[in-house]
């Protein structure tokens, strides 16, 4: 007999062209349900779990420990909860928070662009570009970020002026003093972004290499240029591999910006330090800064989740949008 494979059989469903029911995901839905409708008895499962005493014991111990930890922290007189509360929304702290956000977003954005460039250079046929890219990642991953930050801040010692003009000692068209150009913020941005680019290059390269070479060939056979193949076919698919580690880099960067305090970058940690150097509330202000770092990383983690979902497009059997689109077919309409 003909068992309808849709959960909701209608006459229209049965008269669809044979090809239309080949193996579309829609026609698989509700298989077991259809079986029971065909007269099979329903064998419900209501089983008793075996007891798990170990579970209860460890859960109890962990709860006890957490309660004790919270208690000791709350009653600790050295922790000055009133000071923490007072500074959490202090104007200087919020200013530092804003600088931290700016530094993170800008250096990640520039780092991502540098990373894509370096990765594309690394995978190109031009040996000079390949070596230039390799040199970049080798150098910036090989030296500590702290050293790079201090170096950029003091770049005026090496290059007192920056100019646009004829290279190798020719006449200058525009000339700028390094000391005016390099503020703590620009030095921080340079250091963080260029360093980040070196790490992003490896992440992007792995992403590009993960794309099936057949994709490139299919796109080339349509007559796409190298650039179009990269932009329309390879990078969007590489993104699926690139996004998760990039999210980690972003979250890590939120906290790495605190290194900028060595060049007085005016971000969250620097302003906290400035305040505690005045009022000696060292621990309270470190807690204030930490609370904000935790808030930022939590928000970033939530954002990461949504971005990852967005780039999973086409890789789940049935994304929500398609499930919606399928409903009319499941009812037999076409």
């Amino acid at each position: 007999m003909a068992v309808s494979r849709t959960g909701d059989p209608t006459p229209a469903d049965r008269t669809r062209a044979p090809e239309a029911r080949l193996s579309g995901p829609a026609s698989r839905a509700g298989g077991p349900e259809a079986e029971t409708r065909a007269g099979e008895p329903e064998l419900a499962i209501k089983a008793v779990r075996p007891p798990r005493p170990g579970r209860w014991l460890t859960a109890g111990l962990a709860t006890l420990f957490l309660v004790w930890l919270a208690y000791t922290i709350i009653v600790n007189e050295n922790l000055h909860w009133d000071v923490i509360a007072a500074f959490l929304l202090d104007g200087r702290i919020l200013g530092g928070l804003w600088v931290t956000i700016q530094l993170t977003v800008l250096s990640m954005a520039i780092g991502l662009v540098l990373g894509v460039l370096a990765a594309v250079m690394q995978l190109s046929g031009n040996p000079v570009l390949r070596y230039a890219s390799a040199l970049y990642t080798w150098f910036f991953r090989g030296t500590p970020l702290l050293v790079q930050l201090i170096f950029w801040f003091n770049i005026g010692l090496v290059f007192p002026t920056f100019g646009v003009g004829v290279p190798f000692g020719g006449p200058k068209l525009i000339e700028l003093q390094a000391n005016e150009l390099i503020t703590p913020f620009t030095a921080a941005l340079l250091g963080l972004a260029i360093n980040e680019g070196a790490y992003m290059a490896e992440i992007v390269r792995a992403g590009i290499r993960s794309v099936d070479p057949g994709q490139r060939e299919a796109a080339e056979s349509l007559g796409m240029s190298h650039r179009q193949v990269l932009r329309r076919v390879v990078l969007p698919q590489a993104m699926r591999v690139i996004i998760p580690p990039t999210g980690n880099q972003f979250i890590s960067m939120l906290k790495t910006t605190s290194m900028v305090s060595v060049i007085a970058g005016a971000e969250l940690l620097t302003v906290s330090q400035r305040i505690y150097l005045g009022n000696f509330e060292v621990i309270a202000l470190l807690i204030v800064a930490s609370v904000w770092y935790v808030v930022l990383t939590t928000l970033a983690t939530i954002g990461q989740h949504y971005v990852e979902k967005r780039f999973e497009r086409g890789h789940h059997a049935l994304p929500a949008r398609i499930r919606r689109n399928l409903r009319p077919f499941a009812r037999g309409g076409a």
């Binding site: 994709q215 299919a218 056979s221 007559g223």
Partner: peptide
Amino acid sequence: LSRQRQDIGMVFQRFHLFPHRT
């Protein structure tokens, strides 16, 4: 070269559809 390829369609054994597009 791309111009020449535009006029030549190719169908592969393993389809190579773009998975991120409908």
